[in-house]
Amino acid sequence: VSEWTEYKTADGKTYYYNNRTWESTWEKPQ
């Protein structure tokens, strides 16, 4: 699942961004 990158927002929430599909999600990808 290497295309997903984990980021943190300014208020400390974690989200995930897909470099291949430009998708972002709050849930941890499978």
Score class of each variant (00 low, 15 high):
Val1Ile: 13
Val1His: 14
Val1Gln: 14
Val1Ala: 13
Val1Asn: 12
Val1Glu: 14
Val1Met: 14
Ser2Arg: 08
Ser2Phe: 12
Ser2Trp: 14
Ser2His: 10
Ser2Leu: 10
Ser2Ala: 12
Ser2Glu: 14
Ser2Gln: 11
Ser2Pro: 12
Ser2Thr: 11
Ser2Asp: 13
Ser2Ile: 12
Glu3Trp: 04
Glu3Met: 07
Glu3Asn: 04
Glu3Val: 06
Glu3Ala: 07
Glu3Gln: 07
Glu3Arg: 02
Glu3Asp: 14
Glu3Pro: 09
Glu3Thr: 05
Trp4Leu: 02
Trp4Pro: 02
Trp4Gly: 01
Trp4Asn: 00
Trp4Asp: 00
Trp4Phe: 03
Trp4Ser: 00
Trp4Lys: 00
Thr5Ser: 11
Thr5His: 09
Thr5Lys: 10
Thr5Gln: 10
Thr5Pro: 00
Thr5Leu: 10
Thr5Asp: 05
Thr5Phe: 09
Thr5Arg: 09
Thr5Ala: 11
Glu6Leu: 05
Glu6Phe: 04
Glu6Ser: 05
Glu6Pro: 04
Glu6Ala: 09
Glu6Gly: 02
Glu6Trp: 07
Glu6Thr: 06
Glu6Ile: 06
Tyr7Leu: 13
Tyr7His: 11
Tyr7Met: 15
Tyr7Ser: 06
Tyr7Asn: 06
Tyr7Lys: 12
Tyr7Thr: 06
Tyr7Gln: 06
Tyr7Glu: 05
Tyr7Pro: 00
Lys8Pro: 00
Lys8Ala: 06
Lys8Val: 13
Lys8Asp: 01
Lys8Glu: 05
Lys8Ile: 14
Lys8Tyr: 08
Lys8Gly: 02
Thr9Trp: 02
Thr9Ile: 02
Thr9Gln: 04
Thr9Val: 01
Thr9Asn: 07
Thr9Leu: 06
Ala10Phe: 07
Ala10Gln: 11
Ala10Lys: 10
Ala10Pro: 13
Ala10Ser: 10
Ala10Val: 11
Ala10Gly: 07
Ala10Glu: 10
Ala10Asp: 10
Asp11Ala: 07
Asp11Trp: 08
Asp11Gly: 08
Asp11Met: 03
Asp11Leu: 06
Asp11Pro: 01
Asp11His: 05
Asp11Gln: 09
Asp11Val: 02
Asp11Phe: 05
Asp11Ser: 08
Asp11Glu: 12
Gly12Asp: 03
Gly12Lys: 00
Gly12Val: 00
Gly12Phe: 00
Gly12Ile: 01
Gly12Ala: 00
Gly12Glu: 00
Lys13Pro: 00
Lys13Arg: 15
Lys13Gly: 06
Lys13Val: 10
Lys13Phe: 08
Lys13Tyr: 13
Lys13Glu: 08
Lys13Ala: 07
Lys13Ser: 06
Thr14His: 06
Thr14Glu: 03
Thr14Gly: 01
Thr14Lys: 07
Thr14Cys: 03
Thr14Arg: 03
Thr14Leu: 08
Tyr15Asp: 01
Tyr15Ser: 01
Tyr15Phe: 13
Tyr15Gln: 03
Tyr15Val: 09
Tyr15Glu: 03
Tyr15Trp: 13
Tyr15Lys: 06
Tyr16Thr: 00
Tyr16Pro: 00
Tyr16Arg: 01
Tyr16His: 01
Tyr16Asp: 00
Tyr16Gly: 00
Tyr16Ile: 01
Tyr16Gln: 03
Tyr16Glu: 01
Tyr16Ser: 01
Tyr17Ile: 15
Tyr17Leu: 10
Tyr17Glu: 03
Tyr17Phe: 15
Tyr17His: 08
Tyr17Ser: 03
Tyr17Thr: 07
Tyr17Gly: 04
Asn18Thr: 01
Asn18Ala: 01
Asn18Leu: 02
Asn18Asp: 02
Asn18Gln: 02
Asn18Trp: 03
Asn18Ser: 02
Asn19Val: 09
Asn19Ile: 12
Asn19Pro: 10
Asn19Lys: 10
Asn19His: 12
Asn19Ala: 09
Asn19Met: 09
Asn19Tyr: 09
Asn19Asp: 06
Asn19Arg: 06
Arg20Tyr: 14
Arg20Trp: 15
Arg20Asp: 12
Arg20Ser: 12
Arg20Thr: 14
Arg20Glu: 12
Arg20Gly: 11
Arg20Lys: 14
Arg20Ala: 12
Arg20His: 13
Arg20Val: 14
Arg20Ile: 15
Thr21Glu: 03
Thr21Trp: 07
Thr21His: 05
Thr21Gly: 03
Thr21Asn: 06
Thr21Arg: 03
Thr21Pro: 03
Thr21Ser: 06
Trp22Ala: 15
Trp22Glu: 15
Trp22Leu: 15
Trp22Ile: 04
Trp22Arg: 15
Trp22Gly: 15
Trp22Met: 15
Trp22Tyr: 15
Glu23Lys: 04
Glu23Ala: 04
Glu23Asp: 06
Glu23Ser: 04
Glu23Thr: 08
Glu23Phe: 06
Glu23Val: 07
Glu23Pro: 02
Glu23Arg: 01
Glu23Leu: 04
Glu23Asn: 04
Ser24Asp: 07
Ser24Tyr: 15
Ser24Arg: 10
Ser24Gly: 12
Ser24Gln: 11
Ser24Pro: 04
Thr25His: 07
Thr25Ile: 09
Thr25Ser: 13
Thr25Val: 14
Thr25Tyr: 13
Thr25Leu: 09
Thr25Ala: 13
Thr25Gln: 12
Trp26Asp: 11
Trp26Thr: 12
Trp26Phe: 15
Trp26Pro: 09
Trp26Asn: 09
Trp26Ala: 10
Trp26Arg: 03
Trp26Val: 10
Glu27Asp: 12
Glu27Phe: 08
Glu27Ile: 11
Glu27Ala: 07
Glu27Gly: 04
Glu27His: 10
Glu27Val: 13
Lys28Leu: 13
Lys28Tyr: 08
Lys28Pro: 14
Lys28Thr: 08
Lys28Asp: 11
Lys28Gly: 06
Lys28Phe: 09
Pro29Met: 05
Pro29Leu: 04
Pro29Gly: 03
Pro29His: 04
Pro29Asp: 05
Gln30His: 13
Gln30Asn: 13
Gln30Lys: 10
Gln30Phe: 11
Gln30Arg: 07
Gln30Ser: 14
Gln30Asp: 14
Gln30Val: 14
